[in-house]
Design a protein around this nucleic acid. Structure first.
Lengths: 205, 205, 205, 205
DNA sequence: AATGAATGAGCATTCATTCAT
DNA sequence: AATGAATGAATGCTCATTCAT
């Protein structure tokens, strides 16, 4: 139907979304370096040169920012178009390759602005309501990984193990990476290779 | 020389140490379930039915409680006498067995009152001074593990890998366990077996 | 260019400044009657029927309130327009008259809301950083007085003396006035005359 | 009647008094350098290597320490035997000389351990009860000075002035000396001479 | 004569959140 | 769409004082 001014001028919705994303990315960066509880919304506002209440125009609460962060990360994970080369559920891909894709895709998001905030929030600390939301949001990722593991065990590509536990071990190792990465001067690529090798060695029979 | 009243009646020092331990264990339990930053010292005091300033009689600050927690865990780890069956550095033990001992010993401490607080503090969030202390306290554990890995790779028991990264992956997986353990109803023993298997599969050639 | 609504309706900045001043004056009054360390910011808030955090909207910290108090007093002292009749550095005024002006101007400020808090803070108690700020703020006043004394001694209007010491004696006598003033029922005008006479007798040859 | 052990061994009372004095002098030194309200009794105890409650064996309260400090200073002032050369009320001394003696004696005490704490407490900050005690304790000194001034004015040695105000100016100047003394590197002797000259010039007709 | 242990009361400061504009 | 102003609720920490021993 055409847009007034053409595509040069952003629509209200686009600008809104852009600003929302800016808050999100800034919050993630601060969460990463100071921790969620040690980051005040005023820190986020200051970093963006906006006022504190403005954040409330884009998010209902601080918890809401956190949840949105995770939603965003999961959306990136689930987007089959973007970075199709590591989309795990592409057809015609072996379970071994799927697992590798899962790991690489997770690492890519982890090293992203948004992903670096992962270590600083812990699902079990959220109160019941928020935790349920969180679990629901993360479910596609969890299910993808557990399915790959299950299928791989079934077809003999993987060593038998308790899938739930194995998946949590992997997630734990992954989530902890931003904590020590800087300290030891690894590049994302180096860590990715080490991590993939580490997990795949364990998972293979 | 014998003590008046025998060993039934505790000395002042014993009572002091007992109370200090009580604060420590209570703090750890609360840290575990609410997170370090969401646990006020008044929560700890309330749980013990003592007043808030009393905690300051046993610890200089909240940070000090945290550091003491880690010190205690490291001390348990380094105690060769206690649980000698999983003391990693016992003489005449192969590197494979040492690694297993390291994992089992770490798990035992992790499931302890004190260990369950691990996921809730993140080294990279502490300020320079405290972080240095923390690193110094944890050094014996880190060095033990990295030495075992290095030796095992050298003698062919383990697959070659970047030792630092591998160790951090293991620690990450470990530290994350209390977060999901309850949710999935695993017993400590079950998780321990799964975890040892998971890591050993990855580490062996 | 004129302001909407004329001068009746205050602008945001004016209201801000007015409220800041209210905090300052209230704090000064409380400092005077209870001492700086015995006055809690909540006392100030209560006296103004505002909440404690509101004070933090106008000042960064309690120390900041103190410093602002002194800045304000010095600003009053240095304002050549206001009360021009006792501005010490006006041209064509003899050193004797300048000294008298200095004393009268100081007394006027001392009897003001803000000045009465003087006795309750002691420069030598502030830590290095704040003390440096304090000294810097007060410098114009100190230099004015010492210059007048020096010039007066040079031109024979004043008896020779160590200028630094003499000035400190005067300041000490001055600062102590609010401590005993009420107790002895003197009016500001009476004390001013006595004080000017006391100092001028000492200073003249 | 003779004392057991002769005079070598101190009696209980002597030891008590000695320790009490130690607390007093230590408190005064700390009050001077950190201010009364910023000095905790635990600071005093630490400096003496004793425990906090021990102070309560020698003094009823912190206020009591303060009052004792002043009592001690007044006692030194009123002691006709000690430093008889500047005892103001010695017979056959002119009012001019008496005033000088008063000033020198006050300065001597001010530079003493106990006297240096003067600037840090302000009579008007004490609550009614304590203030009354304080005034009562200081009365001999006040009366001595005011009598000398009155007599001197009566016999023409001094210029007429309001005796109360003049005396307070002198005290204010005096009390402020420890605040700036160190900063400007004056020796006690130098300040004493400047101060006596400053006051005597003002007081003489 | 001295102290270990304990505590009530208080205090500066922070922060998520609200609301009128 | 954005913000200035305001606040309730915490929170870490300090300290004078007490008391049993």
């Amino acid at each position: 139907m055409g847009r007034a001014w053409g595509s040069e001028v952003q629509s209200r919705e686009e600008k809104f979304e852009l600003k929302r994303q800016a808050v999100l990315r800034t919050a993630a960066a601060l969460f990463r370096s100071k921790g969620v509880e040690n980051t005040a919304l005023s820190d986020v506002a200051d970093a963006l040169n906006i006022s504190k209440p403005t954040i409330y125009y884009y998010f209902r609460s601080k918890d809401d920012v956190l949840l949105a962060l995770i939603e965003e990360a999961v959306a990136q994970f689930a987007d089959a178009e973007a970075h199709a080369e590591d989309y795990p559920l592409a057809p015609g891909v072996s379970n071994v390759a799927r697992m590798e894709r899962f790991l690489r895709r997770s690492m890519r998001i982890l090293f992203d602005e948004i992903g670096t905030s992962f270590p600083t929030w812990l699902p079990h600390l959220l109160d019941g309501d928020k935790r349920a939301q969180l679990v629901a949001i993360g479910k596609p990722v969890d299910e993808t990984a557990e399915k790959i593991l299950r299928d791989g065990i079934a077809d003999g590509s993987f060593a038998p193990s308790n899938v739930t536990a194995t998946y949590r071990f992997v997630i734990g190792a992954l989530r902890y990476i931003p904590v020590w990465q800087n300290e030891h001067g690894f590049t994302p690529a180096e860590i990715t290779e080490e991590f993939v090798a580490f997990v795949m060695r364990s998972v293979r029979p």
